[in-house]
Design a protein around this nucleic acid. Structure first.
Length: 183
DNA sequence: AGGATGATATCC
DNA sequence: GATATCATCCTC
């Protein structure tokens, strides 16, 4: 099963966010491959989106968001947790999708119902910032046959500082999935 | 409700 | 160089 092609990520961020639901994130580590089914995401639309890190402009931290799509943007938050995003849309757009929750796939059993928890469980940290998701050790696949699911839209979590952008319905999750962070 | 804990942006 | 803030999680 090949990784999703770069053209998958090179599209409207909301479309990519919704279509990432149900896909499988794979990280090959020294202890084996860890896999999780993506069940919750948030879209960050670009520099005009006051909740997006790219609204700070092009800095060392946000540089990866302005690079071509299909790369990982991983950062440390609150001094102890990591968050993982996938860069979307053409280079220069500064858009990305935050992965907020996974459904752990065997043999992975750790909790993955939150952006920090999923990074911990999957062995994702800052060393993977800028990593190409079209690579053999860290990628996302379409698992093929999936039961259909409904998508719930909600405001994003933890972005109250973003004025009217905090109200936008840019968080998406699989309805009734028990691994969502905040149903 | 509050604390852990460090990188980052934004001031002086 | 100092400080306020943070796309979180856990315990109380």
């Amino acid at each position: 099963m090949p990784p999703l092609p770069r053209s998958f990520y090179d599209r409207d961020t909301i479309v990519v966010a919704r279509e990432l639901l149900g896909k499988h994130l794979v990280h090959v580590t020294p202890t084996g491959a860890r896999r999780g089914r993506i069940v919750e995401v948030e879209a960050y639309l670009g520099p005009h989106d006051l909740a997006a890190h790219s609204s700070k402009g092009l800095t060392d931290r946000t540089r990866i968001m302005f690079e071509p799509p299909g790369y990982a943007y991983v950062y440390l938050i609150y001094g102890m947790h990591h968050c993982m995003n996938v860069v979307t849309e053409p280079a220069g757009c500064g858009a990305a999708v935050l992965l907020r929750a996974l459904e752990p796939l065997p043999p992975l059993a750790a909790r993955t119902n939150g952006p920090g928890l999923l990074c911990s469980a999957m062995g994702i940290d800052r060393r993977l910032n800028g990593h190409d998701l079209l690579s053999p050790d860290f990628f996302i696949i379409d698992p093929g046959m999936e039961e259909k699911f409904k998508i719930v839209r909600r405001p994003r979590i933890g972005v109250a500082y973003a004025k009217h952008w905090a109200k936008r319905l840019l968080r998406f999750y699989i309805k009734d999935n028990p691994h969502v962070s905040q149903p």
